[in-house]
Write a protein that binds this DNA or RNA. Structure first.
Lengths: 239, 239
DNA sequence: AATACAACCTGTCTTTTTGCAGAAATTTTT
DNA sequence: AAAAATTTCTGCAAAAAGACAGGTTGTATT
C-alpha cells in the first residue's frame, strides 16, 4: 500500500494504529485534527532541513524517512530511520532550529502539529504526554545501544547490524520477502558509518556465503539467525 | 562540596535547582517527598546493574555517575555521564529489566521514585510530564549527535571530543581549573570507544603540544578553542 | 624505606580500514 | 537500440588502529 493522493485523513479515521495522538481524549482529538496540517511528500523531498526553525512536530502517517546529519566535510551520516507512526523532530523552544535534515525515502503522508497545539494537548491529556515521554525515552535507549555497538563493532559487524536495523524498522515485503526499503550502498554506508566500497565488499561476501541474497536492488535476509550470531558478542537489545 | 552523610533532604528544601520533580504542584511535591527514598552511594558502587528489574527512576541530587554497557567479550562502553539533576533509567514496563549498568564515580546522593508514584505524578502534573518529556527528547538529540560524531571521527578526534564532553558534563574546578572529574585512561577509552593505549598516546601528545596540561591525575584544558578547531569539521551542537 | 599493586607510557608488529582507480554492471536518456 | 550516466564491484597501496609486551611511575600498605 502506497500513498495515493493528497486527500486529508481525519485523526479519528486514521488507520495508523501507532500514532500517539490517539491517546488524547475524544474531544481533544477533534481539536488536534482541526489544528493539524497534512501533506504528501514525494520521494526524496526534505521534510525539514538543518537550520530551519522548529515550529512543531511531524508525525509520519504513512511512509519512510531518513534523518541525516552532515559535517563540514560534506560527509553525511544517517542517524535514524523512521516509518509509520514515528515522530520527526521534537517540540522546540522559541528560536530553536533543527540540527539535522529529514528526507523521505518514498512518497510519504506526514501530519504536522505546531508547538502551541502540542502544548495544549500535553497540558490536558496526561496519557498522551505519558506515551510521548515513553517514546522519547525508548528511542534514547535505542540510540545509546547503537552508540555502544558502533563504538566497538568492526566494519562487517556494523554493516550486518545496519541490515538488521533496516529490516526491524521497515519490515519484510510479504511478496518477495525482501527488506521493505531500498537504500543505495552509499546510504547504507551512511548508516553504518563507513564507505560505499566496504558496504559493497561486505554485502557481496554475505551474499556468497548465503546469509543474504541480492535480487536487483532488493536485499533478502536468508539467515537472520546466522547474521545475529555473527554479532552476538554484543547483546542485541533492540533488534 | 561533597556529599557528607546519609541525612535525608526533603524535596522542598533541596538545593538542586535542576531537579524536575520541582515542576510538580506544592501538594504533589509533598506527596513525592513522602514516597521517595534517598540513599548515599559511595564511590564505585553500582546504582543498578544490567538485568535488574526496573521499579522506577533515579534522580541524582548530587554526585557523578557513569552509565555503562558491556558485551559478551567483557568489553565495556560508557554510554553516558550524568551529574547533578540528571535522571538515571526510565519508567519501566512491568517485568522490564535494565540493559545497562550505572556506577558512581564519586560519593553521590541519589533519590528514587517508584513507577506508581511517577505515574501518579505524571497524571496530575502536566508541567512535570512536559519537562520530563523535553529532557528525554534533548538527551535523545545529544545521543544522536554523539552517534554521528563517533561514526566518523578518528581516534584522536574521539578522544578530544570525550575530553570536551567530560568538561561540559561536570565542569571545571574553580580552584585548579582542571576538569571536575577523574577518570582513568581505561575509562576515557570506554567513552571514546578505543583502548587505553591510544588514550595514553593521544593525551601525551596533546599535552606536549600545549592543548591540555596534565597535573597528576588532573587534566586541564589549556586551549579549548584549539581543540574544538581540531574537530571543527564536525558541527558541534552539544558542547 | 621496602614491598606490592595498579595505572600509565611507549616501541614494535599485525590487522583492519581507508582511499583511489579502473572495470563491470545497471539504469536512464537520447 | 545505442549512448551516457550512475551505481556497484574489486584490486592494491597507504594509513590508521589495534594488540602485545616491557618498562616506568605513582600510590597505598606494611
Amino acid at each position: 500500500m502506497t500513498v495515493q493522493n493528497n486527500e486529508i485523513i481525519a485523526c479519528d479515521e486514521c488507520k495508523n494504529g501507532g500514532c500517539m495522538i490517539k491517546f488524547c481524549h475524544v474531544d481533544w482529538l477533534a481539536f488536534a485534527n482541526e489544528k493539524k496540517t497534512q501533506k504528501l511528500f514525494r520521494k526524496g523531498q526534505h521534510v525539514f532541513l538543518e537550520g530551519n526553525p522548529v515550529f512543531g512536530v511531524f508525525f509520519i502517517q504513512q511512509g519512510k524517512v531518513k534523518v541525516t546529519a552532515s559535517n563540514f566535510n560534506g560527509k553525511k551520516q544517517i542517524v535514524r530511520l523512521a516509518g509509520d507512526g514515528h515522530i520527526l523532530g521534537h517540540r522546540g523552544y522559541t528560536g530553536e532550529t533543527y540540527p539535522i535534515d529529514a528526507f523521505t525515502l518514498e512518497d510519504s503522508c506526514i501530519c504536522f502539529f505546531d508547538n502551541q497545539t502540542l502544548y495544549d494537548l500535553f497540558m490536558e491529556n496526561p496519557m498522551f504526554s505519558f506515551e510521548m515521554m515513553m517514546f522519547y525515552s525508548k528511542e534514547l535507549r535505542k540510540s545509546e545501544q547503537r552508540n555502544k555497538f558502533f563504538a566497538q563493532m568492526t566494519v562487517e559487524e556494523k554493516i550486518i547490524f545496519t541490515l538488521l536495523y533496516m529490516e526491524s524498522t521497515f519490515g519484510i515485503n510479504a511478496l518477495d520477502k525482501a527488506i521493505n526499503v531500498t537504500l543505495s550502498r552509499q546510504e547504507i554506508a551512511e548508516i553504518a558509518g563507513t564507505n560505499a566500497e566496504q558496504v559493497s565488499r561486505t554485502i557481496t561476501s554475505l551474499n556468497e556465503k548465503g546469509f543474504i541474497r541480492l535480487v536487483g536492488k532488493k536485499i533478502l535476509i536468508m539467515d537472520a539467525e546466522g547474521l545475529k550470531k555473527k554479532i552476538t558478542r554484543y547483546r542485541i537489545g533492540l533488534l
